[in-house]
């Protein structure tokens, strides 16, 4: 695969969904798609310099582009609000009990610092190891680990306080 077009297409096919998925957690759909497109445009320009694996790098670019959204219409929303909004976009399929659980969990999450929630997203939804997640977030591995630990602890506490019975069951 020496052909740059081939390499880029492969990169796009493998990672577009992940990059857009992340962007959707921060901004509305149309802006998220634009940010993803731009992320890959940056990747095209820097194709010869991409690290392996490239996903953390791509997510890092997307994260920086999102941070630059100054336009009020496109201002990024709180992570937890976006997660809740995306759940509302899902039509049907959810039973009430799950909704109640989810609402409680989201309420607990909204009490956490944004970056702590983000640390959880990278760890659990993306399965990124700490060094990769830290690279995306532009912090040290130590800082990332602190955030992740804090998030887990608070989430645990909040859930135990909020739902003694159901969580135990």
């Amino acid at each position: 695969m020496d052909d740059p077009e081939e390499r880029f297409t492969d990169l796009y096919d493998r990672h577009y969904r992940s990059v857009l998925g992340y962007a959707l957690l921060r901004v509305e759909r149309d802006v998220a798609e634009d940010v993803s497109s731009e992320t890959f445009l940056v990747a095209w320009r820097r194709l010869d310099d991409l690290p392996e694996p490239p996903l953390p790098w791509l997510l890092g670019v997307a994260r920086n582009l999102l941070a630059k959204q100054r336009d009020s219409r496109h201002r990024r929303q709180a992570l937890v609000d976006r997660i809740a909004a995306l759940h509302r976009e899902q039509v049907g399929g959810d039973v009430a009990e799950h909704v109640a659980d989810r609402e409680a969990a989201l309420a607990a999450l909204s009490a956490l610092p944004e970056q702590d929630v983000e640390a959880m997203v990278f760890a659990t939804w993306y399965g990124l190891p700490p060094e990769q997640a830290a690279a995306v977030m532009g912090c040290s591995v130590r800082t990332y680990n602190v955030r992740l630990h804090r998030a887990r602890k608070r989430l645990n506490q909040a859930l135990r306080v909020g739902y003694p019975s159901r969580r135990m069951a």
Partner: peptide, 9 residues
């Protein structure tokens, strides 16, 4: 993780 995410992406 919202299920809508996979469909949207």
């Amino acid at each position: 993780k919202p299920a809508a995410l996979d469909e949207l992406t």
